[in-house]
Amino acid sequence: MVKKRTPTPSHTVGPFFPARFFGEGDYDLTFVDDPAKRAQGQKIYIGGNIYEAERVPRWNCMVEIWQPDAGGCFNHPNDPRHSHADPNFMGWGRRSSDDAGWYDFVTVKPGGYTDPLTGFRRAPHIDVAIMSSGLMRRLVTTLFFPDEPANAEDPVFNAIPEADVRERLILKPAKLEGAPADATAYRLDIVLQGDGETPFFVD
């Protein structure tokens, strides 16, 4: 099929993305617009530090995540199972890394699914996009869960041939201060550049 238009070039988000664009509930994916109606599944909390070169914490990063619901469904017409999607699960969240470079989200543990296009079996995962001053294009990566046998088959996890590098995408169980009492907490630091650099994917 011939494409008629070329996508607009990407640019950096710069340092001035308005603080008022970050709503209080935007980092909590367990509800859409009514906090009384909560998503189904195991509540989890994920957090970590973002570092630029030389392990300098990077504040003012815009971090966004996107993931399937607890049943592995998306509330989107491209998902053949979308009619089964949890109506109270947002799937999307956004956070600004704070002065110490910390980002965090409250969500539910995503379900795995069989990809309708490729037939690949996807392990539970969370897509992450990082936007910051200095990044002319966003950085994208995917987070995975520890002790998941499905990781061994996941085509994105295994797109990274080096075992020690792909290990950096596995969330680590942790005790975290900001975690809600009823949530399982995981930590994952994101290193934009340098030792222990986080692997990113072609966007």
Partner: peptide, 17 residues
């Protein structure tokens, strides 16, 4: 220069997510 990864990004298949 300080925030761009030093390694090229990995190719991955595009799936439903």
């Amino acid at each position: 220069l300080l925030r761009s990864p030093s390694r090229p990004p990995y190719k991955r298949p595009v799936t439903l997510t």
